[in-house]
Design a protein around this nucleic acid. Structure first.
Lengths: 185, 185, 185, 185
DNA sequence: TTTT
DNA sequence: TTTT
C-alpha cells in the first residue's frame, strides 16, 4: 500500500473563464477552471502555427475558495497537481472519460496582484502542514496545503459532488465554455 | 505567438502492457503506452483505500522505438512530457476527447537494466541537441531529445497519422480496444 | 507575505552513501543523503563524456527515519523538494554557502523493494493531510506529508539544530567529512 | 553511458538585478541572473516569518541573449533547468563550491509583456528541435531549445568562459550583488 | 492493464 | 561517494 508512483502536473497559463465554484453538502468548496497553454512553431513552409491546449482544473476546499475570490477570466496562474480521469455516462448512457488536473498548489502570476486586481488580505501558508482556517491572501501568492507540497486532497469519492443522474459534459474544448446548470463538471 | 505557458507532466509508474509501436507513412515510429500510478490512504474508518490512475502515453520517433525495444508490461519508468487532448468521433459520430501525455523524456528505472532484462546497446544522448541516428542504449537511461529537455516533437498535425475516418477508440479503458489498421491510435 | 514563488527540485538518482541520520533535541530526525545524477554525451570528437552531479539532500522527521531505515548506498530514488542555501563559517571564520535540497517527497525505485532489500511494514500516506504517527512502509513507496504534495516542513530556523558556533562543513566534496558531535550538518 | 537520472529544477520568482550578459570567445552569450523565491509562514507565536531564497541562474546562447534583452530587475519569470555545482578557488586558494541552475527553459510572466515593458518582435519556438537563428520574441513567451524540453546545452567545459585566475565569488547572498569585473560568476 |  |  501507500502511495506508489509519481503523478505530477505543472502548468502555467491563462484562464479561459471565471472559475466556477460550487459547494458540496459538507460545505467544502469545489472550483472548476479552464486553463489555456499554447505553443507555436514555424511549419515546413515557414508559416507560424499555433496550438492551444485547454486544461480542466479542479480545486477543492480552501484553494477553490481562493480561486473563486481572486481569479477570473484571463488570470495567469501557475498550478501544480495530479492527473485524474473520471468516468461518467453521457445522455445515451455511454461511458465517457474526462481527464482533469486536481490542483494542490496555485500561484497567481503577473505582478503585484497577479495583474487581476485582487485586493489582498490576511496571511496564509503553513510550512508545518497543520490545518488552519484563516483569511486568504491577496494576489501573487502560492496557495496549497503546505510549503511546496500541499496535500489536503480528500479521497475522490467524497470530493466529488454528485449530480442527480451523474451525467456530465465533456472536457473543455471551447474557451467560452458554459456548463449545464445541474452538472457540476 | 511563440510558446506561451508551461505544460508539463512528470510521472513515475509501471506499464500495464507491452508498448504498442506503429509506424507512420514517413517511417517515424509512434508508441502507445499505458502507465499506472497509484496512491493509497486510510479512510475515516481506518480502512486502506487505493486508487490507481491510468495514463495514456504517446511517444514518437526515437523514443517510440526505444520503448518498443526495451519496455514491457510491468516496466517501471519515469517520463516527462506534456498534456494533449485529442478530439475524435465515435461510431455514432459524436465528438469524444482523449487526453494523453506526449512524452519527451523517458528514464527506465529499477537497477541494472530497469529490472526488465533489457540487453543494452549503443550510445545515445546529445546535450547539443543536434539530430542523430545511432543505436539506442540499454536499460536505465534517460532518453529524450536533449539533456534534460528533449524536444524533437513534431507539430501535432504532422505527428498524427490520419486514418480515413478519423474514428478512434477512447482512452485506455475499453476492453475491446482495437485500432483500425491504418490508425495507430 | 504568504508564499510567493515556486521553488521545486525533482531528482532521480542513486545514493553515494548510506544516509546519515541524526536526531534533534526535540526528537525529530534529520537525514543527510548524497545523491548522484549523471549525464553523458558525445563530444566533438565523438568521445563519450560523462558528468556526474552530486546533490546534497536533507530530510526531516518521518522522511528522515524512513531514509535511515530503507535506503542505503546505491539506492535509486525519486525525490522532490526545494532548494535552500545555508550560510556557515569555515574554520577561518569566512562565510561559506552550501546549497541543499530539502526533500518533501521520496519514492524508492527499482522493483519489488527498490532493489535494496527493504523489508516492508505498516501503512502510510494520508491524502487528507492530517498528521499521523504510524509505522513506515517497506520498499518502493512514495513518502511525504500528503498525496503528491507533502509539506510538513518546519520553518528552517526550528528545523536546523544549532551547534555552538554554527560552524559546519561544506557540501559533499570534502574527503574528511566529519560533523561536530552536536551539529548534524 | 547516456544520461542516467533526472536533474530538474523549476522556479518561479523575481530577479534581484538586471541580468549580466557576457560573451565567450566563440561568440556565445552567457547570462547570470539572481532569482528570488520566498515563502512565509506563521511561527509558534503566530508571528509571520519570511524567508527569501536566492537562486543563481545561468543561461547560455540564445536564452542568455533573450535574458539580456527582455529581463530586468524585478522581472517575474518561470525557469526550468538543472542543478550544477562548480568548484572554484577563492583568493586563499581554498576550494569553494557554488551551486547554480543551468536554465534550459524560460518563460516571462506577468501579462502582455511580462509586466516589464519588453517590446516584442519576431517569432520563436520550434517544436521540431532543429537549430534556428531568427529574432527573439517579445514578452511572455517560453524560450528554450525545443517544445517544453530544450536542450542545446553544451558540455560544461566549453560553456564556461574562463577567467584569468579562475577565481570567483560565492553565490548570491545579496539582492544587490555586484561581481568583480574580471570574474564572470 | 501495472506495481506493492 | 552512486549507477550504467
Amino acid at each position: 500500500m501507500a502511495t506508489r508512483g509519481v503523478n505530477k502536473v505543472i502548468l502555467v497559463g491563462n484562464l479561459g473563464n471565471d472559475p466556477e465554484v460550487r459547494y458540496m453538502p459538507n460545505g467544502n468548496a469545489v472550483a472548476n477552471l479552464s486553463l489555456a497553454t499554447s505553443e507555436s512553431w514555424k511549419d515546413q513552409q515557414g508559416q507560424v502555427q499555433e496550438r492551444t491546449e485547454w486544461h480542466r482544473l479542479t480545486m477543492y476546499r480552501r484553494l477553490a475558495e481562493i480561486a473563486g475570490e481572486y481569479l477570473k477570466k484571463g488570470s495567469q496562474i501557475y498550478v501544480e497537481g495530479k492527473l485524474q480521469t473520471r468516468k461518467w455516462q453521457d445522455q445515451q448512457g455511454q461511458d465517457r472519460y474526462t481527464t482533469e488536473i486536481i490542483v494542490d498548489q496555485m500561484q497567481m502570476l503577473g505582478g503585484r496582484d497577479g495583474g487581476q486586481g485582487g485586493q489582498g488580505g490576511g496571511y496564509q501558508q503553513r510550512p508545518q502542514g497543520g490545518q488552519q482556517g484563516g483569511g486568504y491572501g491577496g494576489g501573487n501568492q502560492n496557495y496549497g496545503g503546505g510549503n511546496q507540497g500541499g496535500g489536503y486532497q480528500q479521497p475522490p469519492q467524497q470530493q466529488r459532488p454528485q449530480g442527480g443522474q451523474n451525467q456530465q459534459k465533456p472536457p473543455m474544448a471551447e474557451p467560452d465554455f458554459d456548463f449545464d446548470d445541474d452538472i457540476p463538471f
